[in-house]
């Protein structure tokens, strides 16, 4: 009994901790300005965790949207798609806070474009249209080059080819999730989702590093 109580208390404490963490993350993201001057020496850490949060959220929401769509859950799909687009806007704002509002405006349609290709792929999966799926994959892989070109143009520390490869991995890991969702294999879908989620730090971390390198004065606390 005691043991159980201890475990229960521990769980409650964990949930409380998690809840605190969540609300902090939300507050932080609501006004995400990665260039905001901070009095602490954690600006680089803020940048890195901020980008990781946003990119991780992107994958989770994308998978939620495709899962709901493939499962025929309309209301859930609509909510997930809206949340996904809010995340896209937040990512663009983060880019804008590092660069400028023009970069933010240029980034958003580019970012949304890959989501529209993911939609094409999911439509193909839903209707067993292999040609549509193949075209979407090809569009997505081509898009990776555009995305690489954008970031390398904004930041010389981000080689186009490197970014493109990372984006391609993002596309392929997300594709695994959608394929499993379409095959009604939740175990596989969630295993793939963990992979896809984890992969996002491969994009967020080099991006944070490159930004810190580009603006050493702003992100002086980089180790």
């Amino acid at each position: 009994m005691n043991k159980m109580f201890a475990r229960l208390t521990g769980t409650v404490a964990l949930i409380a901790l998690l809840a605190t963490g969540c609300s902090m993350a939300t507050a932080e993201r609501g006004s995400m300005d990665l260039s905001m001057p901070r009095t602490s020496t954690t600006k680089y850490a803020d940048l890195r965790t901020g980008l990781n949060t946003l990119f991780g959220e992107h994958v989770i929401l994308a998978a939620a949207a495709t899962g709901a769509a493939l499962g025929g859950r309309q209301a859930e799909f609509k909510a997930a798609a809206d949340a996904l687009d809010s995340n896209s806007i937040d990512i663009s704002r983060a880019i804008g806070s590092v660069y400028d509002v023009e970069a933010e405006k240029a980034f958003l349609p580019l970012w949304r474009k890959h989501i529209s290709f993911v939609v094409d792929y999911t439509v193909g999966a839903a209707s067993n249209d292999k040609a549509k799926q193949d075209k979407a994959v090809s569009d997505l892989l081509g898009y990776a080059d555009d995305f690489g070109a954008f970031l390398s143009s904004a930041n010389p520390n981000l080689p186009k080819a490197t970014v493109a490869e990372l984006v391609k991995s993002h596309i392929l890991t997300l594709k695994e999730v959608i394929d499993a969702q379409a095959a009604k294999d939740p175990v596989k879908a969630y295993t793939a989702l963990r992979m896809a989620y984890n992969h996002m730090q491969m994009i967020a971390n080099p991006l944070a590093d490159a930004i810190a390198k580009q603006f050493p004065d702003r992100y002086a606390s980089r180790p």
Binding site: A69, K78, K105, S116
Partner: peptide, 23 residues
């Protein structure tokens, strides 16, 4: 499938609704 396509069209709208943003 038809319902799914309908939802996806909505997502497509979300994704493609970016108006010209160059000021």
């Amino acid at each position: 499938i038809m319902a799914t396509l309908g939802f996806l069209a909505v997502l497509g709208l979300v994704g493609l609704s970016d108006k010209p943003v160059v000021g």
